[in-house]
Design a protein around this nucleic acid. Structure first.
Lengths: 157, 157
DNA sequence: TATTGTTATACTCTATAACTATA
DNA sequence: TATAGTTATAGAGTATAACAATA
């Protein structure tokens, strides 16, 4: 499941080493891990993990994608995509159909049930974000997203 | 080892679903994962992982800590701290000595070799950060760190 | 009783190699 | 020969339960 969900627990936290906190890489990792744990709790009622939610979102919003395209978009190795898709298909949230033009490939689409679950989960995640970022205005949120985008593209060059 | 290191590879990336990218949680996770992979490469020559580097940094800069305090500071469960400490101790980078006041506890300290390795690794990580964040000025970096701090403290309340 | 450190264990995420069936 | 999907497998990272020694 990953990290413990209860980050609000009032354990007597040790506040020490300042040097590590200067690193954006370190701070980003810790923050991301905290958010991830909370997000997992948010998605639990829908029986979705972050990976299955991401896959569902991509499939619903881009119907007909191949698994390899999904894997690329999610930055997941192809073999690891299989069980994700298997899970969603077994629950009748998506369909896997052989492509007519290339019989090696599958075209993946969301079902009506998948779309309903996705919309509900999406709303829960959006609410979660708003709670989480209540202290930041739209401008600040955009700055964060912009900075992350900049770092990501810096890596792709 | 985690994620593939070569994020600069020019795979034909699929740019699709815009909805996911609106989520700070999602974007943060992806960015953090990319940075982490690169950081792992940076630490490899020192035979350190992000977790062992973090532990070493905390130990060197706060000598005499107990393992439980380290685990708290690193947000790691106590059982998972053991192998980290074992690794560093086996390489003579740190010492584990029974506390005189509480014979259940260990006081952990860095050795001279540990300090040398840490300083070299710290410099490499700092250089890595500067390369990574070359597109951001000091003000923008501080804003990111501030926003992360705000999110983290929001969770602790 | 509670806490420090430990062992054992399990689950998720990720990476690689090798297979199959198509192209 | 190359590609799409699959299987099998291995290694990090992280979580919980239960134990011995000490408080």
């Amino acid at each position: 499941m990953g990290r413990s969900a209860d980050h609000r627990s009032s354990k007597k936290t040790v506040q020490l080493d300042v040097r590590l906190r200067e690193f954006v890489g370190y701070t980003l990792r810790r923050t991301s891990s905290i958010i991830q744990a909370d997000l997992a709790q948010t998605l639990k009622p829908f029986d979705l993990r972050m990976l299955t939610f991401s896959a569902l979102s991509l499939i619903i919003n881009n119907p007909g994608l191949r698994q390899s395209q999904l894997a690329d978009a999610m930055d997941v190795e192809h073999p690891n995509m299989v069980s994700l898709i298997d899970d969603l298909e077994a629950r009748n949230l998506i369909t896997r159909e052989r492509s007519t033009s290339d019989r090696r490939a599958y075209a993946v689409c969301g079902t009506e049930a998948g779309k309903r679950l996705y919309e509900a989960a999406h709303k829960a995640v959006a609410d979660h974000e708003n709670r989480l970022l209540a202290g930041l205005n739209d401008d600040q949120r955009q700055q964060i997203l912009g900075a992350m985008e900049m770092i990501q593209t810096a890596y792709k060059i």
